[in-house]
Computed example of a mutant assay.
Amino acid sequence: MRTAHAVDTLIARKLAKRFQLLDFDGDGYITGEDYDKLVDRILQIFDEPPGSERAVALRRGYQVLWRALAMTSDTDGDGRVSPEEFQNAVVGGVLNRDGGFERAILPVTKAVVALADTSGDGRLSPDEVRALGRGMGISDEEADTFFTLVDTDGDGYLTVQEVFEADRDFYLSLDPNAPGNAMFGTL
Protein backbone atom coordinates (compact mmCIF):
# COMPACT_ATOMS: atom_id res chain seq x y z
CA MET A 1 0.00 0.00 0.00
CA ARG A 2 1.30 3.46 -0.90
CA THR A 3 1.72 6.05 1.77
CA ALA A 4 0.36 9.57 1.56
CA HIS A 5 3.93 10.81 1.14
CA ALA A 6 4.48 8.50 -1.85
CA VAL A 7 1.25 9.71 -3.44
CA ASP A 8 2.29 13.30 -2.88
CA THR A 9 5.62 12.48 -4.54
CA LEU A 10 3.87 10.97 -7.57
CA ILE A 11 1.60 13.98 -8.00
CA ALA A 12 4.53 16.35 -7.49
CA ARG A 13 6.56 14.54 -10.18
CA LYS A 14 3.68 14.60 -12.67
CA LEU A 15 2.99 18.27 -12.08
CA ALA A 16 6.68 19.20 -12.24
CA LYS A 17 6.95 17.43 -15.60
CA ARG A 18 3.87 19.19 -16.98
CA PHE A 19 5.04 22.53 -15.65
CA GLN A 20 8.43 22.07 -17.32
CA LEU A 21 6.80 21.38 -20.68
CA LEU A 22 4.39 24.31 -20.33
CA ASP A 23 7.12 26.78 -19.29
CA PHE A 24 8.08 27.23 -22.90
CA ASP A 25 10.63 29.98 -22.38
CA GLY A 26 12.15 28.35 -19.28
CA ASP A 27 11.75 31.41 -17.03
CA GLY A 28 10.22 29.43 -14.15
CA TYR A 29 6.65 30.62 -14.75
CA ILE A 30 3.75 29.67 -16.99
CA THR A 31 2.13 32.55 -18.87
CA GLY A 32 -0.37 33.01 -21.65
CA GLU A 33 2.59 33.52 -23.99
CA ASP A 34 3.89 30.05 -23.10
CA TYR A 35 0.54 28.59 -24.14
CA ASP A 36 0.65 30.59 -27.39
CA LYS A 37 4.14 29.26 -28.16
CA LEU A 38 2.98 25.70 -27.48
CA VAL A 39 0.09 26.15 -29.92
CA ASP A 40 2.46 27.67 -32.50
CA ARG A 41 4.79 24.66 -32.25
CA ILE A 42 1.92 22.17 -32.59
CA LEU A 43 0.58 24.05 -35.62
CA GLN A 44 4.04 24.05 -37.15
CA ILE A 45 4.49 20.29 -36.59
CA PHE A 46 1.24 19.63 -38.46
CA ASP A 47 1.87 22.37 -41.06
CA GLU A 48 -1.49 23.87 -40.13
CA PRO A 49 -2.21 27.42 -41.32
CA PRO A 50 -2.75 29.73 -38.32
CA GLY A 51 -6.15 30.94 -39.55
CA SER A 52 -7.63 27.53 -40.28
CA GLU A 53 -10.68 26.34 -38.36
CA ARG A 54 -8.64 23.67 -36.57
CA ALA A 55 -5.88 26.14 -35.65
CA VAL A 56 -8.41 28.63 -34.30
CA ALA A 57 -10.13 25.91 -32.25
CA LEU A 58 -6.78 24.77 -30.81
CA ARG A 59 -5.72 28.31 -29.90
CA ARG A 60 -9.14 29.07 -28.40
CA GLY A 61 -9.03 25.87 -26.33
CA TYR A 62 -5.60 26.68 -24.94
CA GLN A 63 -6.62 30.29 -24.23
CA VAL A 64 -9.60 29.05 -22.21
CA LEU A 65 -7.33 26.64 -20.39
CA TRP A 66 -4.83 29.43 -19.64
CA ARG A 67 -7.55 31.75 -18.32
CA ALA A 68 -8.92 28.98 -16.07
CA LEU A 69 -5.42 28.22 -14.79
CA ALA A 70 -4.56 31.87 -14.21
CA MET A 71 -7.87 32.61 -12.50
CA THR A 72 -7.51 29.72 -10.07
CA SER A 73 -3.74 29.60 -9.66
CA ASP A 74 -2.24 33.07 -9.94
CA THR A 75 -2.69 33.87 -6.27
CA ASP A 76 -0.38 36.89 -6.29
CA GLY A 77 -1.99 38.42 -9.40
CA ASP A 78 1.26 38.89 -11.34
CA GLY A 79 -0.10 37.39 -14.60
CA ARG A 80 2.03 34.29 -14.37
CA VAL A 81 1.83 30.98 -12.56
CA SER A 82 4.73 29.73 -10.47
CA PRO A 83 5.44 26.03 -9.93
CA GLU A 84 4.00 26.34 -6.42
CA GLU A 85 0.83 28.04 -7.62
CA PHE A 86 0.41 25.40 -10.33
CA GLN A 87 0.86 22.53 -7.92
CA ASN A 88 -1.38 24.05 -5.25
CA ALA A 89 -4.18 24.61 -7.75
CA VAL A 90 -4.09 21.09 -9.17
CA VAL A 91 -3.56 19.35 -5.82
CA GLY A 92 -6.32 21.51 -4.35
CA GLY A 93 -8.66 20.04 -6.93
CA VAL A 94 -9.73 23.27 -8.58
CA LEU A 95 -9.99 21.54 -11.95
CA ASN A 96 -12.28 18.89 -10.54
CA ARG A 97 -14.81 21.19 -8.86
CA ASP A 98 -18.22 21.52 -10.44
CA GLY A 99 -17.18 19.77 -13.65
CA GLY A 100 -14.29 22.19 -14.11
CA PHE A 101 -11.93 19.53 -15.39
CA GLU A 102 -14.23 18.55 -18.23
CA ARG A 103 -15.04 22.18 -19.07
CA ALA A 104 -11.34 23.14 -19.16
CA ILE A 105 -9.72 20.04 -20.63
CA LEU A 106 -12.25 18.39 -22.97
CA PRO A 107 -12.36 21.26 -25.53
CA VAL A 108 -8.55 21.27 -25.71
CA THR A 109 -8.47 17.48 -26.03
CA LYS A 110 -11.00 17.60 -28.87
CA ALA A 111 -9.09 20.38 -30.64
CA VAL A 112 -5.75 18.59 -30.26
CA VAL A 113 -7.14 15.30 -31.57
CA ALA A 114 -8.87 17.05 -34.50
CA LEU A 115 -5.64 18.77 -35.48
CA ALA A 116 -3.43 15.70 -35.06
CA ASP A 117 -5.91 13.48 -36.92
CA THR A 118 -4.28 14.00 -40.31
CA SER A 119 -6.15 11.02 -41.80
CA GLY A 120 -9.51 12.56 -40.85
CA ASP A 121 -10.91 9.35 -39.37
CA GLY A 122 -11.68 10.83 -35.94
CA ARG A 123 -8.93 8.96 -34.10
CA LEU A 124 -5.17 9.02 -33.72
CA SER A 125 -2.76 6.49 -35.17
CA PRO A 126 0.66 5.81 -33.62
CA ASP A 127 2.31 8.08 -36.23
CA GLU A 128 -0.12 10.91 -35.43
CA VAL A 129 0.56 10.49 -31.70
CA ARG A 130 4.34 10.62 -32.33
CA ALA A 131 3.94 13.87 -34.29
CA LEU A 132 1.76 15.31 -31.55
CA GLY A 133 4.31 14.22 -28.95
CA ARG A 134 7.01 16.15 -30.79
CA GLY A 135 4.73 19.20 -30.67
CA MET A 136 4.27 18.72 -26.93
CA GLY A 137 8.00 18.28 -26.36
CA ILE A 138 8.19 14.51 -25.80
CA SER A 139 10.20 11.89 -27.68
CA ASP A 140 8.83 9.38 -30.14
CA GLU A 141 9.65 6.59 -27.68
CA GLU A 142 7.68 8.33 -24.93
CA ALA A 143 4.78 8.87 -27.34
CA ASP A 144 4.85 5.16 -28.24
CA THR A 145 4.73 4.20 -24.56
CA PHE A 146 1.82 6.58 -23.99
CA PHE A 147 -0.02 5.18 -27.02
CA THR A 148 0.38 1.57 -25.90
CA LEU A 149 -0.84 2.32 -22.38
CA VAL A 150 -3.79 4.48 -23.39
CA ASP A 151 -5.13 2.37 -26.28
CA THR A 152 -7.45 0.68 -23.80
CA ASP A 153 -9.51 -1.19 -26.38
CA GLY A 154 -6.40 -2.37 -28.26
CA ASP A 155 -7.68 -1.31 -31.67
CA GLY A 156 -4.46 0.48 -32.65
CA TYR A 157 -5.96 3.98 -32.42
CA LEU A 158 -6.71 6.56 -29.75
CA THR A 159 -10.11 8.20 -29.53
CA VAL A 160 -10.94 11.56 -27.96
CA GLN A 161 -12.38 9.66 -25.00
CA GLU A 162 -9.20 7.62 -24.48
CA VAL A 163 -7.06 10.76 -24.62
CA PHE A 164 -9.43 12.60 -22.27
CA GLU A 165 -9.31 9.73 -19.77
CA ALA A 166 -5.50 9.87 -19.98
CA ASP A 167 -5.68 13.60 -19.19
CA ARG A 168 -7.85 12.79 -16.18
CA ASP A 169 -5.37 10.11 -15.04
CA PHE A 170 -2.44 12.45 -15.39
CA TYR A 171 -3.90 15.33 -13.42
CA LEU A 172 -6.14 13.58 -10.92
CA SER A 173 -5.18 9.93 -10.44
CA LEU A 174 -3.28 8.82 -7.37
CA ASP A 175 -2.65 5.42 -8.97
CA PRO A 176 1.04 5.06 -9.86
CA ASN A 177 0.05 2.59 -12.62
CA ALA A 178 -2.58 4.80 -14.27
CA PRO A 179 -2.02 4.77 -18.06
CA GLY A 180 -2.35 8.54 -18.33
CA ASN A 181 0.71 9.08 -16.15
CA ALA A 182 2.74 8.63 -19.36
CA MET A 183 0.91 11.44 -21.15
CA PHE A 184 3.77 13.92 -21.07
CA GLY A 185 6.68 11.50 -21.18
CA THR A 186 8.81 9.82 -18.61
CA LEU A 187 8.41 11.01 -15.07
Rank of each mutant, 00 (worst) to 15 (best):
G77V: 00
S52I: 13
D117M: 14
M71N: 13
N177I: 09
G77M: 06
L132E: 07
D8H: 05
R18Q: 10
V163D: 01
F24S: 14
R103E: 05
F46S: 06
M1A: 12
Q63G: 11
P49K: 15
P107G: 02
D23H: 03
D127R: 14
L69E: 01
G135N: 06
R80L: 08
G93L: 14
A89W: 07
D47Q: 08
K17N: 09
D169Q: 03
N88S: 14
F184I: 11
R80I: 01
D25I: 08
F170I: 04
A131L: 10
D27V: 04
H5M: 11
I30G: 11
L10Y: 13
E33L: 15
Q161K: 10
G122P: 04
D25E: 10
T3D: 01
G92D: 05
F146D: 12
L149Q: 15
L158W: 12
L43E: 13
D169G: 11
R18W: 08
P83Q: 13
D151G: 08
T75F: 12
E53S: 13
S125K: 04
D36P: 00
E48W: 02
V108K: 12
E85C: 12
A111H: 08
F184W: 13
G120L: 03
A16P: 01
T72E: 15
V150W: 01
G154A: 01
F170W: 14
G122Y: 05
G120V: 02
A55H: 05
T3S: 15
V90W: 10
E102N: 12
D23P: 10
G180M: 09
L38Q: 04
V64E: 10
A55P: 01
T145H: 12
H5K: 14
F147N: 05
P179F: 12
A89L: 03
A104N: 08
A12D: 15
Q20S: 14
S82V: 10
P126H: 04
V113E: 07
A131E: 00
V129R: 04
A111E: 09
G122H: 04
D34I: 00
L43C: 14
V90E: 10
N181S: 13
L15W: 03
S73R: 09
L187K: 02
D175P: 02
Y171K: 06
L21P: 10
E48L: 02
F164R: 06
V94D: 04
T31E: 05
V94L: 09
G100F: 08
N96K: 03
K17G: 00
R2F: 13
R2H: 08
T109M: 03
G92H: 09
